[in-house]
Design a protein around this nucleic acid. Structure first.
Length: 275
DNA sequence: AGGCAGGCTTTTA
DNA sequence: TAAAAGCCTGCC
């Protein structure tokens, strides 16, 4: 199914921006994303033209929402003053095409618990191992088997040895605690979408192994709060280097998270020599 | 009370 | 060997 998307949309930049972990790139240059037990392949077919290997119904019920296609990112970028904030302007220009995904809250919670104190390839590996171990077996549009992200009950049923076999290290008990909280009903990650952001953040931080940074990632990437501003080692580096007198959060509210993502991707691209 | 040092598993580069 | 989308515990 061919779609014309006039706003910023770059599947490759979205995939590599470190907000989702289960994407793949095919030999023919398409990107495959996964969400809520489904896969979609996206291939660019010219300027602003993208082929999604799904029907209209699935596009409207799943992928339009996942890629946040009802939001106007060009308009959000236009809020940046290139003279007042040259670093953010450069980051957003270079990383144009990134969007903030509206991911499944449960998967986002577990993924970012796993993410702490690890680099992105290691996170991807652990998430994939968990899915391989206890996610539902499915087949994608190209006939390739894949695993859905594990349900809370499936993760809660894993023992210490199973979790450690997925490379979780000391985080295994954090994953178990979160899964238990969801299975027992102490936490409903889906209900948090409807809560005030500060309430959602507090509820997440009550979980063992979830601090402010992970909670902010869940709010931003899983709970549709574009103002959440996760501060990891890379963003702290940006703030120390380019905003020694403080970062103007008020100026960028309620889109702090979008700008955070441009800066996160950009500083890492700079460090890897890509820029 | 709020802040800080030390420790933590494993993978990646 | 150092660093990685951090957090917990114990101490002050």
């Amino acid at each position: 199914m061919l779609k014309e998307i006039r706003d910023d949309f770059d599947p490759g930049r979205i995939a590599q921006s470190g907000q989702c972990f289960r994407w793949t790139r095919t030999e023919d240059g398409a990107y495959r994303f996964m969400s809520r037990g489904s896969c979609v392949y996206i291939a660019e077919r010219g300027a602003g033209l993208f082929e999604f290997d799904c029907g209209e119904a699935e596009f409207d019920s799943l992928w339009r929402n996942y890629f946040d296609l009802n939001e106007n990112y060009a308009a959000i970028r236009a809020r940046i003053d290139p003279v007042a904030d040259p670093f953010l302007y450069a980051a957003a220009e270079y990383e144009k095409g990134i969007r903030i995904l509206r991911q499944d809250p449960w998967e986002t919670l577990i993924s970012f618990i796993i993410s702490q104190n690890r680099n992105i390839p290691a996170i991807r590996r652990s998430v994939e191992l968990l899915a391989e171990r206890c996610g539902d077996a499915r087949t994608d549009g190209r006939g390739i088997p894949f695993r859905a992200f594990p349900a809370p009950e499936a993760l809660a049923a894993l023992g210490e040895a199973d979790l450690k076999a997925c490379g979780l290290g000391y985080r295994w008990s954090y994953v178990r605690a979160a899964a238990s909280a969801v299975v027992s009903g102490d936490l409903d990650p889906y209900a948090l979408c409807r809560a005030e952001n500060s309430e959602a953040r507090d509820a997440l931080m009550r979980l063992y192994g979830v601090g402010g940074k992970v909670a902010d990632c869940v709010c931003l990437f899983g709970l549709r709060c574009k103002d959440a501003f996760p501060r990891d080692v890379w963003i702290n580096r940006v703030l120390a280097l380019h905003y020694p007198d403080g970062y103007p959060y008020e100026r960028y509210s309620p889109y702090n998270g979008v700008f955070q993502q441009y800066m996160f991707a950009y500083i890492r691209d700079c460090a890897s020599g890509a820029v």
